[in-house]
């Protein structure tokens, strides 16, 4: 077993780690906040407040 074999195992482990982080945080977020808050983003809200499209 050489360094490349170790790197293969390390790549598997890191992939699982990143995947786990994402899944755990996703489940925690979805159970902490209401669906109304999570999907409250609306297109163009900032523009509506700050810009006037008149010349």
């Amino acid at each position: 077993m050489d360094i490349w074999n170790f790197m293969e195992y390390a790549a598997w482990a890191l992939s699982a780690l990143f995947g786990l982080f994402i899944i755990i945080d996703w489940l925690r977020t979805d159970s902490t906040y209401s669906e109304e808050v999570l999907t409250s983003s609306r297109e163009g809200e900032l523009e509506a407040l700050t810009e006037e499209h008149h010349i």
């Binding site: 490349w4 195992y9 790549a11 992939s15 990143f18 994402i22």
Partner: peptide, 21 residues
Amino acid sequence: TGHDGLDQRPFIILAIMFLAW
């Protein structure tokens, strides 16, 4: 570097998982 037969799959998955994270 003289190593044949590397399994590419863990590196493909790692690239996607790291960047997704």
